[in-house]
Design a protein around this nucleic acid. Structure first.
Lengths: 136, 136
DNA sequence: CATAACTGTAACAAATTAAATTACATATAA
DNA sequence: TTATATGTAATTTAATTTGTTACAGTTATG
């Protein structure tokens, strides 16, 4: 129930970190990830809304990090792209006549919150700078 | 990148635990979850392959837990349904000309392993019996 | 031993979601 | 003023997930 948005965002941010303040165009970024530039611009828009990126319009425009890579945790990136629950939701409402069906969504929700918190805690151990450093 | 399989399997197993050894038919289970019985049978087949469930064919057939709910952790259930990586994969191969594109999959894989381990650790804190106990 | 009520699967269809594409308005450097 | 960007909406295409149909195999029971 997740798409590739986390990977795309992390890829974008790693490139921006490596660019060291120079702006990168969405076309250039798309070429590295090998996806459509419009998708890159959509993710950039999201990252901008979450304060991680700034963009410059017009000729010679492009994007760059809004803050130091040391101050961006992978948990923060995850949070910016998360949308639907980590472990997947049924779309059908379970049978309200059944004692289990009636209550399961509530219990699943609680479970998912705890689980996702553990995941975010783990992701937050690492910053974008840490991740980016792994590349030669 | 996960579908509702975890929720379906947990729902099935909770019903089986509540049934206390009595067999439940896939039709009955499907009625509680409100999905197609064939999907239930598919999940039962998977749970059977992972040693959590046994089924009896023929008239008055159905399924029941293969072991005590105290000996089934939610992490084990997660493991039985997991297929694609937790945080989502790109399907396009990144540009091998780009220093970031060339290495990112390796680094993402490492990251995903660590992250998923944290998630499984958290899920494994709870057994099916613990989960099932939450229902009135 | 015939029948009814199940499971187990395969094959296919429908629905949903994700990704790619097209299109174009707007911004800005040179 | 032109070329090169971003920003975003709308649409198409592709992939994935879910549901359905169909039917062979199994077993309890009259």
């Amino acid at each position: 129930m997740n798409n590739g948005r986390f990977a795309i965002s992390l890829h974008i941010l790693t490139l921006l970190d490596k660019a060291n303040g120079e702006v990168l165009s969405s076309d250039y970024i798309a070429g590295s990830i090998n996806i459509n530039p419009v998708l890159v611009r959509k993710e950039l828009s999201n990252l901008r809304n979450h304060g991680m990126v700034l963009s410059k319009e017009g000729k010679n425009g492009g994007s760059y990090l809004a803050k130091s890579a040391q101050n961006i945790t992978l948990g923060e990136i995850y949070n910016s792209v998360r949308q639907n629950s980590l472990l997947g939701n049924l779309k059908n409402t379970p049978n309200p006549q059944c004692p289990v069906g009636k209550q399961i969504n509530k219990h699943l929700d609680n479970l998912y919150v705890d689980t996702e918190n553990a995941l975010i805690r783990q992701l937050s151990v690492q910053t974008l700078a840490d991740f980016s450093r792994k590349f030669d």
